[in-house]
């Protein structure tokens, strides 16, 4: 079995980001970048399935500039067998990325594609679902448990109010939630081995995918600063204010 793991390069989760002065986006120059944490969980799950003997090959893939090779190297050090960079200068959006991934899936023919449920930079939570629709595959999103069983995939999903378990036919798409696993740190010998593993670069244009942005960012703003609190004299006043001023009850 082959698993495809699409991953995304995002600003490191520990970095405090600032909005650009022209409010066109977030300042990224010179910031530490890393693999999106949900993508790390996806990679980890693929590696665990491989260690359990169910998976033969893991292919990591990302879409972006040449600098994205660093997260592919991390994926290879975590345990991916090979990596693909679909190179583009365009800032890809979920639909564009999903189309690229469909093209890659057509070439690679994986049985399972595991993605992070969302990226911590734009929090879209769309790529996995769009990819499932484009491929016409089953999808199990927000997975907190994954088992291969009876020729299919049993996925436990985190849903409002509890857990839902689905049986998916293969091929299938899985998107990972936070509790699926705890990703491993990369070890030095594996970092060195990763350098020798294959990393192919494909131009996005060669896949015949149109990555033109379909969404336009109007403006990006800092969250409003929190105002000071007030003291109320009684429960009655509290209820009154919540109902009539805040209109939350």
């Amino acid at each position: 079995m082959k698993i495809l793991v699409p991953i995304k390069r995002v600003v490191d989760a520990n970095v405090r980001v600032r909005v650009k002065s022209d409010r066109s986006g977030v300042e990224l120059a010179n910031l530490k970048m890393a693999m999106n944490p949900f993508c790390e969980i996806a990679m980890e799950e693929a590696v665990r399935q491989q260690e359990a003997g169910t998976v033969k090959e893991i292919v990591a893939v990302t879409v972006g500039g040449a600098q994205c090779q660093d997260i592919l190297r991390t994926a290879l050090a975590m345990g991916a067998d090979r990596a693909i960079l679909v190179e583009t200068d365009v800032e890809a959006q979920p639909l564009g990325v999903a189309k690229v991934l469909r093209a890659v899936a057509d070439r690679e023919k994986p049985e399972v594609i595991i993605l992070g449920k969302q990226a911590i930079d734009d929090d879209n939570n769309q790529t996995g679902q769009m990819l499932a629709a484009l491929l016409g595959w089953a999808q199990g999103t927000f997975a907190s448990k994954l088992e291969f069983a009876g020729g299919g995939l049993r996925v436990t999903r985190e849903v409002d109010g509890g857990l839902e378990t689905l049986m998916l036919k293969l091929p299938a798409i899985v998107t990972t939630d936070l509790r699926l696993n705890e990703p491993r740190y990369v070890k030095l010998p594996n970092i060195m081995k990763a350098k020798k593993k294959p990393l192919d670069v494909i131009k996005a244009a060669d896949l015949g995918v149109d990555l033109t942005s379909r969404l336009k960012v109007l403006k990006v703003e800092e969250p409003p600063a929190r105002g000071g609190g007030i003291k109320v004299a009684s429960v009655q006043e509290l209820v009154h204010r919540l109902r009539n001023e805040r209109k939350v009850i």
């Binding site: 740190y185 990369v186 970092i191």
Partner: peptide, 18 residues
């Protein structure tokens, strides 16, 4: 020869994490 800047970066990252 088995190393490069990226290897060093990842090594430092892992050290920070542990």
């Amino acid at each position: 020869a088995a190393h490069d800047r990226q290897v060093f970066n990842l090594m430092l990252d892992t050290a920070e994490r542990l």
